[in-house]
Lab assay of single mutants.
Amino acid sequence: ETGKELVLALYDYQEKSPREVTMKKGDILTLLNSTNKDWWKVEVNDRQGFVPAAYVKKL
């Protein structure tokens, strides 16, 4: 879809709370919100949640 910003997972991340999502290094995720410098909201496999901003980079 146009207008979607994507990020690349630089590291594996295992969710530690229900508000977070698990990702694997190399995953491409849809970026939903990056206003917080530490935690970015992403969508992966129809799930939305937060990942550490340092673990992903914008494509």
Rank of each mutant, 00 (worst) to 15 (best):
L32W: 05
L6I: 08
Y11H: 11
W40A: 04
W40Q: 01
L59P: 04
V42A: 01
L59S: 05
N36S: 10
P52C: 04
S34G: 12
A54Y: 09
G3T: 13
L29E: 01
N36L: 09
K37E: 11
T35M: 09
E15G: 15
W39C: 07
Q48A: 12
K37N: 12
Y13D: 00
T35I: 07
Y55C: 13
V56I: 08
K57M: 14
S17I: 05
E20H: 06
M23S: 01
V7A: 11
L31N: 01
R47I: 07
K16E: 07
E5W: 11
V21G: 02
Y13Q: 00
A53K: 06
R19L: 13
E1P: 14
G3Y: 13
K37T: 11
E5Q: 14
L29T: 01
Y11I: 08
D46C: 13
V51H: 00
L32I: 14
G49C: 03
L31F: 02
D46V: 07
L29P: 01
W39M: 05
V51G: 00
Y11F: 13
V21P: 01
Q48Y: 07
D27H: 05
L29M: 14
P52R: 03
Y13L: 02
D27C: 07
W40H: 02
V42G: 00
K4H: 13
N33P: 03
P18T: 10
D27L: 05
S17M: 08
V56E: 02
T22D: 04
K4L: 13
D46A: 11
V7N: 00
D38Q: 12
L31H: 01
I28P: 02
K24N: 09
E5S: 11
T2F: 12
L10K: 06
G49P: 01
V44F: 15
L59G: 04
Y55S: 13
G26M: 03
E43G: 08
K24F: 11
G26A: 03
N36G: 10
K58E: 07
Y13M: 01
W39Y: 07
K4F: 12
T35F: 09
T22W: 04
V51N: 01
A9K: 01
A54E: 10
E20F: 06
N33H: 07
K57S: 11
Y55A: 13
D27P: 00
I28M: 06
L6F: 15
L59R: 03
D38A: 11
K41R: 11
K25H: 06
V7C: 14
V44N: 15
N36H: 11
